Simulated scan of single mutants.
Amino acid sequence: MIYVDNNATTPMAVEVAEALSQAYQSAFLNPASQHQAGQKARRRLDDTRESILNLVGGEITRFASDRLVFTSGGTEANNLALFGLGGDIPGQVVISAVEHPSIREAAEHLAKLGQSMEVLPVDSAGVVQIDALRQALAQPTRLVSVMLGNNETGVLQPTAEIAQICRENGVPLHVDAVQAVGKIPVNFRELGASAMTITPHKFHGPRGIGALILDDRVKLNPAMFGGAQQLAMRPGTESVELAIGFEVALRLAIEHQAEAEPRMRELRDRLEMLLGELIGPENITINGLDAPRLPHTSNVSFSGIDRQALVMSLDMAAVACSTGSACASGSSEPSPTLLASGADPSIISSSIRLSLSRFTTQAEVDEVASRIFNCINRLRRS
């Protein structure tokens, strides 16, 4: 099986698996316990938390410190951001039209609870229209949430400009950076956001853990109750072992980033070039091609081919890919990202997502292109 569905999840790095094994063998106990064994676990957890913050550009000083709240993953962190930052006082929550379901559906639920929801349109490449944001902020706004890199097309949003506009209007900005961290340089302080979501299973770390990074100035209302852990912002016993795996995966991703980013970009471009040569440039569309993109993501439409049939055919040919977000797997609904971009229905119905990792090889990319070509020919004959 050739795996090109790394935006859904990534295989765990060997070093991370080894670090997890060692952590579990160390028998870390409950870090909230007052005995010596519990306090040993607390010190290791605190050291790991601080290291993760430093790696993503969080600031820890004597006078003010950014905070990191561990969660069960990116979806919980996104929900915690929206309900914790946008749901206590009446006002609007502003999101883009291309957000992940964990943002979009959380905002829709806030609207049912009495908040209003404003959805920012995007251009044909899927980039947020800045003028629409300025207009939206003329109304009382509790929170703006815009992703850094799109999970379906890889298109990057102008988050630095968005953050500046939000600061000028005194509105907190949450950035879903799940697909971007570990692939491109991301510095929380330089980004200028009030909150940022990350999760390690997108960069060869463990599943079951994520984090919400918080600027030291923002107040987060908890979405869960029943404990004082993590300053009561997200109660429950933390997993020291998963936090250790998180930190190791992030450190490795950043250490390899300088060589991995251009290499993934080169392989993605090669894959798109080969598909154009094999299938004909007139028969494929690279969605988001006219915008800056994450280096590892390609969303391709094949003229006259049903996306679901192609993904199933590729699965039989031992290529693992997807039609979009794994959180919508099994759904036959058209891509919200491509719909928001105003793509033609024929483009939407024939698009698949191919996502690489730092472990993807050129031989795999070449073979994927060949197998896609063969599968499309079989589908056209049938």
Rank of each mutant, 00 (worst) to 15 (best):
R378L: 06
G149W: 04
D176K: 08
N374C: 12
I165T: 09
P292D: 09
N7Q: 11
A291T: 02
V144W: 05
L294T: 15
R371L: 00
L339T: 15
R67W: 01
S298M: 09
M12P: 00
S313V: 08
R42M: 09
R43V: 11
T141Y: 09
E15F: 07
P11M: 11
P101Q: 03
H100G: 11
S145C: 07
S96C: 13
K112F: 06
T159W: 05
I286L: 03
E108P: 01
R217N: 05
H174P: 05
Q139R: 10
F83K: 02
L310W: 06
L173S: 03
H174G: 01
E161T: 11
S382H: 14
E277T: 00
A180D: 08
A81I: 02
R62Q: 12
P101D: 08
S26E: 15
R43H: 15
G86R: 04
G227P: 02
L110V: 04
T71W: 09
T285H: 10
K183D: 06
T237R: 09
R134K: 06
F203S: 02
I184V: 12
Q139M: 14
D131H: 07
G73T: 08
A320K: 13
L80E: 01
R251Y: 15
G236H: 02
R134Q: 15
S370Y: 06
G126P: 02
R293M: 14
G208S: 08
G192R: 00
L191S: 05
S322P: 07
L379V: 00
E108W: 03
F188L: 04
A320V: 15
V171K: 03
L29C: 09
D47G: 05
S351N: 09
A8R: 15
L148E: 10
R167V: 05
R358C: 10
K112N: 11
S325K: 09
T199A: 15
D88S: 14
V218E: 03
M264N: 05
S72R: 14
P334C: 00
P158V: 02
S194L: 01
D88C: 12
